[in-house]
């Protein structure tokens, strides 16, 4: 027994280590995701029996104007969220000074990251309120009237995404700050000797060293953008008239408000496919980076 154990422990123990996490993750997350694909092939009201309908949900989806609204809005979210890495980097550069008191200011910058979405939603709801919001206060100071962003189909997605951007910037800022902390001082010093300063130093010496962290920041930001749900649910419920829904929200709405779980699952599956494309890109980048490190 003991010999058997010794011969095999080099793989048995690691396997045992891996199993709890794997089983939990597999049964809860992965199995549930696959089951969603299965549900998308049915007509189901969430209570009664499921009726097999094949691809009917997808065919209807292809002809659903709301679906394209959601898709377009997901793209808008993605584009707006792409501001988070550069702004986060800029803020990280600003606070990366060792001055007494800077640490507390740094921490204050991170605060939006730890706020609940419900909180951020409440906060920005007041910023945007057309009657007494911060924005109106600002416009009023110049004698103007602020546009009612949350009830304008053109602006609403931008406004909600901007609220979502707030914590996202903080997240990117933290990542970049961590990256700046681990810069290679020799390279910087060498750059200084070569007369590189300011922008050129950033461009040619600093940024290349931040490529890893930049990659992570972009990845986290893309996920954040595609996953956006809470902010929409809290701030607008997808409105006005569904003009700021994204795929995740439309899925929720079809399932929960219209009781069309099969149709909702079909939307989820489309999101799933988009995500998989992105995940493949990410994993590819990850593996490549690892190889070049090795």
């Amino acid at each position: 027994m003991s010999r058997l154990w010794r011969r095999n422990r080099h793989w048995v123990t690691p396997a045992l280590f891996l199993l709890p996490g794997l089983i939990l993750f597999g049964t809860v997350i992965l199995a549930a995701s696959i089951e969603t694909v299965w549900i998308s092939l049915h007509d189901w009201d969430g209570i009664g029996a499921k009726t097999w309908v094949g691809l009917a949900n997808y065919i209807e989806l292809a002809d659903d104007p709301q679906f394209y609204v959601s898709l377009k809005n997901n793209v808008i979210w993605l584009l707006i969220f792409m501001l988070a890495p550069p702004i986060g980097l800029a803020l990280a550069l600003i606070v990366n000074q060792q001055i007494r008191g800077m640490r507390i200011l740094k921490s204050l910058f991170f605060v939006p990251l730890v706020l609940a979405t419900v909180t951020v939603g409440v906060v920005f709801g007041w910023v945007y309120d057309p009657n007494f919001g911060l924005l109106q206060l600002l416009f009023g100071a110049f004698g103007g009237t602020a546009p009612a962003l949350l009830s304008d189909e053109t602006f609403v997605t931008f406004a909600v995404a901007a609220a979502g951007l707030w914590p996202q910037i903080a997240f990117c800022m933290i990542l970049f700050l961590a990256g700046l902390n681990s810069l290679n001082d020799d390279l910087i010093a060498a750059g200084r000797v070569d007369g590189a300063r300011g922008w050129r130093m950033l461009r040619h010496v600093v940024l290349p060293q931040l490529s890893q962290v930049g990659f992570i920041a972009i990845a986290v930001t893309v996920i954040g953008a595609l996953r956006s749900f809470d902010m929409i649910a809290v701030m607008t419920s997808g409105g006005p008239y569904g003009s700021c829904t994204v795929l995740a929200y439309q899925m929720y709405q079809e399932s929960i408000f219209s009781y069309r779980f099969g149709y909702g699952a079909a939307i989820a599956t489309v999101l799933f496919v988009i995500m998989i494309v992105f995940i493949a890109w990410y994993l590819n980048g990850l593996i490549k980076a690892e190889r070049s490190n090795a």
Binding site: G21, F25, G26, V28, I29, L30, A31, A32, S33, E35, T36, I39, G46, I223, L226, R227, F229, L247, A248, M251, Y252, S255, F261, A265, A268, T269, L271, F272, M275, I276, F278, I279, Y282, L283, L286
Partner: peptide, 18 residues
């Protein structure tokens, strides 16, 4: 890859099965 990929999924899609 499964761990990373699964984590990137929008959690809402697992709503009903979970």
């Amino acid at each position: 890859a499964l761990f990373v990929g699964g984590n990137f999924l929008p959690a809402q899609i697992m709503m009903i099965p979970v």
